[in-house]
Structure formats: structure tokens, C-alpha cells
Amino acid sequence: MRKWAIFLGLFLLAACQNAVKTPETLRPLAGEGGTYIALLKPGAAAEALARDHGLAVAAEDRLEALGMVVLRNLPPGLAQRLAQDPRVQSLTPDRPVQAYAQTVPWGVERIGAPTTQAKGGNVSVYVLDTGIKVGHEDLTNLKGGYAVVKCRGRCKAAYDDDNGHGTHVAGTIAAVNNAVGVLGVAPAAELYAVKVLSGSGSGSISGIVQGLNWVIAHNNGGKPKVVNMSLGGAGTDDQDGQYCPSVRSRDALHNAIQKAVCDHAITVVVAAGNEGDDAANHTPAAYDEAITVSATNSRDDWPSWSNYGPDVDLAAPGVGILSTWHTSTTAYNTISGTSMATPHVAGAAALVLSRYPGHTPAQVKAALLQNAESTAGWTNTSGHPHPEPFLNVRGF
């Protein structure tokens, strides 16, 4: 059964569709308080836009690296006027996001990670999730982070983990080789916690784009960057079949991922989702710019709940995965989901970039696919088509 509503795996979003300036598409989800993400036209200033409409915009809502601004508590009439402002390319209503996981326990050994010469050194991996447990014995490579949604309870930092999901993901990516606990795929990589989900695993698109904005702007000394997004929700690819098109998406989430991947060479790895559905019906899984990951079990088979379809790029271990946990600095837990498969691939991307730091996201994806294991001879009892190859890092 699913442990959370987080797919830490996918967010529960209203359908991600092109933001059209109509009353229907500008209607915010109930309870979201009239929050919108304005994608500004080139040269437009968020400060001037806010002033002209009598709005106060906090500094953290001015997403300069993305050319966006988060606008909160807008009455419907004001939202309509902003949508028609010539400086606004599109206005996307905020939508909730959640993390997925399922209860049930293996993975780094199967993909061959312990055999690699590359260990992820000089690569930064950003975990957009519920945070990462600060001070965990197996996550001494946590270098810092940023909190869109602040940790609640006994937290050592705003980006500390009050759920567990983000800590679990981080351990699979890069738990250090220190003779205790578990070993991550890329134990020499450095981790950054980007807390965009609450202790209940909920969040919003505005939080995701705020997190991506921070990742793009963050000075990590020029090292290659990888983003892990074990989250998602309902929606479709508004530019299906187009990788980094010159005319970018008008949807805020897709546009932000395109800017990260296409303009800033950040490799983005995302979960396919846990609905047993075509990944084309879920975002960011459906986006061509991301590397989308399904989940397998220790019998080289896919569970019925793992999403499928042409948008899925790779399969990776996602059932019964042991990793770090948030309840103490020495805690570990075993859970399942495409959320647990995704960090195997994010760690693998770090391995590639530690050997080839100049690789673009497209080249990273090509390297992973070229080295992947064919699943043509596997027994597939999931009830869904799963032709995607299985992650293999042997030889890296």
C-alpha cells in the first residue's frame, strides 16, 4: 500500500496544461489562496509589475533566474487583469504537489554501483523533496540547502526533513562509504536539500519552481548539477516530442524544467509515478527534457503500480529499498515506489558527470541509455508494457 500520498514519486496536480488567459484556466485550486506564477516576457521587471497592480512581492517570490514571479492572495478580478498585462506571457494557477512511496525492501548492488571507479566526486545533487535529515551519520556529504516549505518540529535547519521521504531518497543517491548504514550509488557526490514539500508530503508548483530557481542560482563552485524530483502529478506534456524547443512552454513547471535543463545544463531526473498508468498523463514524468524512471523489484519485474509508456526512459530498483531515514541520525527504513527508483538514476547521472563533467543533460541521458541492460528477456507480470531498459552503471 502507499505509505504517503507523495509519489515521492508524483505530485497531485491539477492538469498541467498550457496557461491560457481565460477565466477557467485562471481559477486557482480551492484552498490555494489565489496564488499564481507569472511567466514574464523578456525584459519585464517583476518589481514594476507588482507596483503597477498594487502588490507587495516578497524577495523569495521574485524568481529572477526563471523570469517568473509568484503572486499570492490574488482576487479573481486582479488575476484576470494581470493575465492581460502585456508584460505577462502566461499566468499559471498554483497547484498542490505530493510525494509517493509504498511500504515494502535492495538496489545499489543490482545496478552495479559498488563496482564503479567513478563515485560522483565534484558533482552536486539537489534533492527537491521533504528535506534531508541534518546530521545523519550516513549523509555527512550534505552541504546545505534551501527551504520553500520550512521544517516543523525539532529541526536543525529550515531544510531538515520532517517526513522521511527526502532523507530516504538522499541515501540512495549518495549515502557515504563509511562502514555504517547503507551505501549510496554516488557516495562521493555532495548533497543539497531543497525542501519543497511539507511534513505531510504536500507542496505546490510555485514551491517547485522556487526550488528550481534556487538550484539554478546557487553557486556550487561551478560543479555539474543534478536534480532529483521524486514527485509529480496529473498533467500532460504541452510540447510532446520536443526537446528544448526554441519556443519554450508557457506552463510554469515545464518552462522552469526547460530552463534548468536547456539553458543551465542541469540534469533533471523524475519519477514515472505510482498509479499504474501511462506516464504521459503525469508531469513532470511526461516532459521530454527530464529522465523519467519506473520501478522494478528484485525479481527483475515491474510492480503493477509503476507507471509505464513511451515517456519512461529507464527502469531502476524501487521495491523494498533500504535507505536512510529521518527519525534519528542513525535511522534507516525500507520503503517502495518510483520515488525510490528515481534516486538510483540521479546517482548514476552523478557518476557520469564525475567522469565527464562537460556532458550536457542530453549526453548524460545518452550515456545511461547506452550502458543500460536490455529488459527484452524479462518476465513482465505488471499488466502494462515496459520496454524501457534497466539502469546499469558497471564500467563507469
Rank of each mutant, 00 (worst) to 15 (best):
A252S: 11
A193N: 09
Q17T: 15
G107A: 14
T329E: 13
L8Y: 04
T35D: 00
N274S: 11
G107K: 03
A279R: 00
L40V: 10
L212S: 04
V148Q: 03
N333L: 00
S304L: 04
S323A: 09
G54P: 08
G395Y: 02
A272Q: 01
V148L: 05
L49S: 11
G31P: 01
Y308H: 12
A83P: 07
G320N: 06
Y356W: 07
L191K: 13
E32N: 12
G43F: 09
V194E: 03
A188C: 03
H264M: 06
V196H: 05
A99D: 08
A38S: 13
V226Q: 01
T130A: 12
L322H: 13
I173R: 04
A174R: 12
R72E: 12
G67L: 09
E137V: 11
V209R: 15
E289C: 05
N213T: 15
V196Q: 09
P187W: 05
V149W: 05
G241E: 11
G77Q: 13
N380K: 02
P86Y: 11
M1L: 11
Y36P: 14
M68T: 13
G337V: 00
K41Q: 07
A316R: 02
A5V: 13
A349I: 12
G207A: 13
R355C: 06
K156W: 01
L26W: 07
R152M: 10
G145V: 14
A189V: 07
N219H: 03
A65C: 02
A295I: 00
Y332F: 15
L183F: 12
D238K: 00
T283Y: 04
A348P: 14
V270R: 01
L91C: 15
G67E: 09
A157Q: 06
A280I: 11
G145I: 12
L12C: 15
G181H: 01
Q89E: 15
K150I: 00
V69R: 15
A316N: 04
S339A: 09
D129Y: 06
W325C: 14
P387H: 03
E275A: 15
I205W: 02
G31W: 03
Q98G: 10
A113M: 08
I173P: 00
R250Q: 04
P357I: 15
S249K: 09
A217D: 05
T103L: 08
Y332P: 06
K195C: 15
S230G: 08
A315S: 09
R95G: 14
D94I: 07
A99S: 12
V97A: 06
T381F: 02
D278Q: 09
L40K: 06
H165T: 01
P361W: 08
H386Q: 01
V261H: 01
G201K: 03
G67K: 10
A175M: 12
A14C: 14
G241H: 10
G164K: 02
L29S: 06
M340K: 00
V148Y: 09
P42E: 01
E64F: 02
G203E: 03
T236N: 14
Y332I: 14
S306M: 04
S204F: 03
A315Y: 02
S198P: 03
L369N: 02
P75A: 08
V268I: 07
Q80V: 11
K259W: 07
A286G: 08
